[in-house]
Lab assay of single mutants.
Amino acid sequence: SKNWSEDDLQLLIKAVNLFPAGTNSRWEVIANYMNIHSSSGVKRTAKDVIGKA
Protein backbone atom coordinates (compact mmCIF):
# COMPACT_ATOMS: atom_id res chain seq x y z
CA SER A 1 0.00 0.00 0.00
CA LYS A 2 1.07 3.58 -0.52
CA ASN A 3 2.71 5.36 2.38
CA TRP A 4 0.61 7.87 4.25
CA SER A 5 2.38 11.02 5.46
CA GLU A 6 1.32 12.77 8.65
CA ASP A 7 -0.15 15.55 6.48
CA ASP A 8 -2.22 13.04 4.49
CA LEU A 9 -3.51 11.45 7.70
CA GLN A 10 -4.53 14.88 9.01
CA LEU A 11 -6.22 15.61 5.69
CA LEU A 12 -8.09 12.30 5.89
CA ILE A 13 -9.35 13.16 9.38
CA LYS A 14 -10.51 16.55 8.11
CA ALA A 15 -12.23 15.00 5.09
CA VAL A 16 -14.01 12.35 7.18
CA ASN A 17 -15.40 15.16 9.36
CA LEU A 18 -16.36 17.28 6.35
CA PHE A 19 -18.21 14.42 4.67
CA PRO A 20 -20.12 12.53 7.39
CA ALA A 21 -21.79 9.14 7.13
CA GLY A 22 -24.78 9.42 4.82
CA THR A 23 -22.90 11.50 2.24
CA ASN A 24 -23.59 10.15 -1.27
CA SER A 25 -20.57 8.18 -2.55
CA ARG A 26 -18.83 9.26 0.65
CA TRP A 27 -15.51 7.46 0.15
CA GLU A 28 -15.21 8.56 -3.49
CA VAL A 29 -15.88 12.14 -2.37
CA ILE A 30 -13.26 11.86 0.38
CA ALA A 31 -10.69 10.35 -2.00
CA ASN A 32 -11.36 13.12 -4.51
CA TYR A 33 -11.02 15.78 -1.82
CA MET A 34 -7.69 14.30 -0.76
CA ASN A 35 -6.43 14.16 -4.34
CA ILE A 36 -7.22 17.86 -4.74
CA HIS A 37 -5.78 19.03 -1.41
CA SER A 38 -2.91 16.64 -0.68
CA SER A 39 0.62 18.00 -0.97
CA SER A 40 2.07 14.50 -1.44
CA GLY A 41 0.83 14.14 -5.00
CA VAL A 42 -0.22 10.55 -4.28
CA LYS A 43 -3.54 9.72 -5.92
CA ARG A 44 -5.86 7.92 -3.51
CA THR A 45 -8.79 5.73 -4.44
CA ALA A 46 -11.91 5.17 -2.35
CA LYS A 47 -10.49 1.74 -1.50
CA ASP A 48 -7.23 3.31 -0.23
CA VAL A 49 -9.17 5.73 1.94
CA ILE A 50 -11.51 3.08 3.37
CA GLY A 51 -8.49 0.94 4.20
CA LYS A 52 -6.94 3.74 6.22
CA ALA A 53 -10.05 5.26 7.80
Rank of each mutant, 00 (worst) to 15 (best):
S38P: 01
I36M: 15
K2M: 11
D8I: 04
S40E: 06
N17D: 15
S25C: 12
N24Y: 07
L12W: 09
M34F: 06
N17M: 08
N35S: 08
P20A: 04
I36C: 14
W4Q: 02
P20S: 05
K52F: 06
L11P: 01
V16R: 14
Q10M: 06
S1D: 03
A46R: 08
K43E: 11
G41T: 11
T23P: 04
A21D: 12
V49I: 12
W4C: 02
S39E: 15
W4K: 02
K52V: 09
N35F: 02
W4F: 10
H37D: 05
D7V: 12
A15N: 00
I36V: 13
A53Y: 03
G22R: 11
M34W: 03
N3R: 06
W27E: 09
D7M: 14
G41M: 13
Y33G: 00
I50W: 11
K2Q: 05
A31T: 14
I30T: 00
S25P: 04
S38W: 00
R26V: 00
K52L: 05
P20T: 03
N32D: 13
S40W: 03
D8N: 02
N32L: 06
M34Y: 02
K52H: 10
W27R: 02
D7R: 14
Y33P: 01
L9C: 12
T23C: 06
M34E: 02
Q10W: 02
F19T: 05
V29K: 10
S38R: 05
N17K: 12
M34A: 01
V29L: 12
I36R: 14
G41P: 10
N24A: 15
Q10F: 05
V16F: 08
K14H: 12
A15E: 00
A21Q: 14
K2V: 05
K14W: 03
N35G: 03
I36E: 15
V16I: 15
L11R: 04
S25W: 08
G51Y: 11
W27M: 06
A15W: 03
L12T: 01
W4P: 01
V29R: 14
N3H: 13
V16C: 08
S40T: 09
L18P: 02
I36Q: 15
I50C: 07
G22H: 09
F19K: 00
A46E: 12
V42A: 03
K43V: 10
V16E: 12
I50A: 15
A31P: 01
G22D: 13
W27G: 10
S5M: 04
G41V: 09
S25K: 13
S25N: 05
P20R: 05
N32Y: 04
W4E: 01
D48R: 02
I13P: 04
L18K: 07
I13C: 09
A21E: 15
Y33H: 05
E28G: 05
K47G: 12
Y33R: 01
V49D: 01
S1C: 07
N3D: 14
I36W: 10
V42I: 15
D7N: 10
